[in-house]
């Protein structure tokens, strides 16, 4: 089980960020995902595995500067 933006979500072995986002309707908004303390950017969504019991935060990242 993982938590995504504070909500519990089913987890399975081998789950990547890309897999997680495929179940969301608004996945195109998210350029960066935070898994616990680590930011992962869109180019690495496909190959980044989400560990069990992770706290996941979806970030649009429109800011900066």
């Amino acid at each position: 089980m993982i938590r995504v933006n504070g909500k519990r979500q089913f987890w399975y072995e081998g789950m990547t960020i890309k897999d997680l986002l495929e179940d969301l309707e608004d996945s195109h908004h998210y350029a960066v995902i935070r898994i616990n303390d680590k930011h992962v950017s869109r180019p690495y969504f496909e190959k980044t595995l989400i560990p069990d019991n992770s706290e996941v935060f979806l970030i649009s990242l429109i800011a900066g500067g």
Partner: peptide, 21 residues
């Protein structure tokens, strides 16, 4: 705390993100 943790790490979160893109 759920987004970029600026109160802990300021704008340093941008370094690796900029690098990734």
């Amino acid at each position: 705390p759920k987004q970029n943790e600026m109160a802990k790490i300021g704008t340093t979160h941008l370094v690796t993100i900029m690098n990734d893109f």
